[in-house]
């Protein structure tokens, strides 16, 4: 896949970092403000997709990234499940119980396990969207060859 012009590349370089940070903000404030793991994950994936579209890459490299992202996705969702099952052993045999201290309302570190779920769901969603995007690109490259 070819890259785009220098203007697009420069603007993307400037923007993608900010978009990435914004995604992290949405995820970490999931329990306080609207948004959360899913929305933030989609934004983070957007930052990566922008870079790949602007700069282009060869298929072999993309395949390697795809392997990594699909592994990350499975691992992240497995950790979410582990966190939920851990509640089963810590919090009197209740699945999905909130076993960490709840903290002060409105603080960034509060609400027990919910921020942790948000973080791992964010990673999972970002990795899944990147995987789908890469699968489509790789498929198209293989068709045109």
């Amino acid at each position: 896949m070819k890259g785009m012009s220098i203007i697009v590349k420069k603007v993307t370089q400037l923007l993608s970092g900010i978009i990435f940070l914004y995604g992290i903000y949405i995820i970490t404030h999931g329990h306080l403000t609207p948004g959360g793991g899913f929305a933030g994950g989609a934004i983070i994936a957007g930052a990566y997709i922008l870079l790949i579209l602007a700069f282009g890459s060869d298929t072999i490299k993309l395949k390697n990234i795809e392997k990594g992202s699909s592994l990350t996705e499975s691992l992240a969702i497995f950790i979410v499940l582990l966190l939920a099952v851990l509640a089963f052993f810590l919090g009197s045999k209740i699945f999905f119980a909130n076993y960490l201290p709840k903290g002060q309302l409105g603080e960034i570190i509060s609400a027990g396990v919910i921020p942790l779920y948000n973080i791992f769901i964010g990673i999972e969603v970002a990795a899944a969207i990147i995987t789908i995007f890469l699968a489509l690109i790789i498929f198209k490259e293989e068709i045109t060859k």
Binding site: L71, S74, I77, F78, L81, A84, V85, F88, K93, F95
Partner: peptide, 22 residues
């Protein structure tokens, strides 16, 4: 307390296969 096992166990297996199966 046995009830959620029917959902958790196959779900965890699916993800474990995708991680360890590789």
């Amino acid at each position: 307390s046995l009830i959620p096992i029917f959902v958790i166990l196959p779900l965890a297996t699916a993800f474990l296969i995708m991680i360890l199966g590789k």
